[in-house]
């Protein structure tokens, strides 16, 4: 049993989110320390203001201003801060109904411990020092001892230099493991051996093996060394730089059926002018120090394979 492989996989991207008019007004308002809500056809004030009425599905556009103080409707003490969450220390999650609003907003409450928070407690917004037009312009809520104050008042939603979008960076960390068959393959390739697996039912040899014969739906187990030479079954000439790849253009990207394999794998062809690569060309892998995969494939010098010998593999 080969060693099972495992490695971190980081999925990270700064998503660029355009905003609809209600969202734009709300988030710009936060930048200006103003909290906006939106009024429904039955005069309910929704804060945060959603674009569409959850009950009637009507488009909502009728903005109002509500208070920066409010009342906790439920809470949860978060003893362990997690990445991306507000405050950088333990805090309470709260749903808070701002004064003048009929619905609650989710945010963080800065208190020392769970004993300092209860449903019905009065809180107010603590504004972030630097505000950009995002939900995080509310740094958090903090305890407040004033009574319920303001009624909602109409607001035209107009501000100077309104934000039209937010950038929402998101990072998730995974520990990826490719499983038994792929681990075995990757391990053998690192030893410069191309080892596929044969299906016990249809006898086809799969490389890379995927743990299952996809046509029979059964596990492949019998290891079969294939190649190292193979035949170019088809290809394209790449004239456009692929992301994160430093390969001189143009180059040839080919499907290569290794001798003994029943389907082609993919690789780059070099050691021959790009415009002389052809279907049927016989090639072999070229390894570089420390490479996990063959760096490229080069011509073996054998005569080209006859089309009929590989056309089932195209």
């Amino acid at each position: 049993m080969p060693e099972l492989l495992k490695a971190p996989l980081v999925v990270e991207f700064p998503f660029t989110r355009s905003l609809g008019p209600v969202q734009s007004a709300f988030l710009t308002g936060l930048r200006e320390r103003t909290v906006l809500g939106v009024k429904t056809s039955d005069d309910k004030i929704l804060v945060p203001p959603v674009e569409y009425d959850p009950v009637t599905a009507d488009e909502l556009r009728d903005l109002v201003e509500v208070g920066a103080t409010g009342t906790v409707t439920t809470w949860a003490w978060n003893p362990e801060h997690r990445r991306g969450q507000p405050l950088g220390k333990p805090f309470a999650w709260i749903l808070v109904k701002l004064d003048g609003a009929d619905t609650a907003l989710l945010h963080a409450l800065d208190v020392d411990g769970p004993d300092a928070v209860h449903t019905g407690m009065r809180v107010r917004i603590r504004w972030a020092e630097e505000r950009t037009g995002a939900i995080t312009d509310i740094a958090c809520f903090e305890p407040y001892d004033g009574d319920e104050a303001s009624e909602a008042t109409p607001h035209d939603g107009e501000f100077e230099d309104k934000v039209s979008g937010i950038v929402a960076p998101a990072r998730l960390d995974y520990m990826y493991s490719p499983g038994r068959a792929a681990s075995a393959y990757i391990t053998s390739v690192a030893e410069r051996k191309m080892v596929g697996e044969r299906c016990p039912s249809c006898s086809k040899v799969y490389i890379p093996p995927r743990g299952a014969c996809p046509t029979c739906g059964v596990a492949t187990r019998e290891e079969v060394e294939v190649g190292p030479s193979g035949t170019v079954t088809t290809f394209c000439i790449v004239n456009v730089k692929a992301k994160n790849l430093d390969i001189e253009l143009p180059y040839v990207y080919a499907h290569i059926a290794l001798d003994g394999a029943d389907l082609a794998l993919h690789g780059r062809i070099a050691g021959i002018p790009y415009d002389q690569v052809r279907m049927g060309l016989r090639v072999e892998p070229v390894w570089t120090e420390g490479g996990r995969y063959p760096d490229h494939y080069r011509p073996t010098g054998e005569p080209d394979a006859d089309y009929d010998t590989y056309k089932e593999l195209v």
Partner: peptide, 27 residues
């Protein structure tokens, strides 16, 4: 997405389709 151990995509989006087009032309 940068899935560990996988050979990086060598050819971008069109590189996936172009070899099949060549196969069609040949056939």
């Amino acid at each position: 997405l940068p899935v560990p151990f996988q050979q990086p995509l060598l050819a971008g989006a069109g590189g996936f389709f172009a070899p099949h087009v060549r196969a069609y032309m040949r056939r």
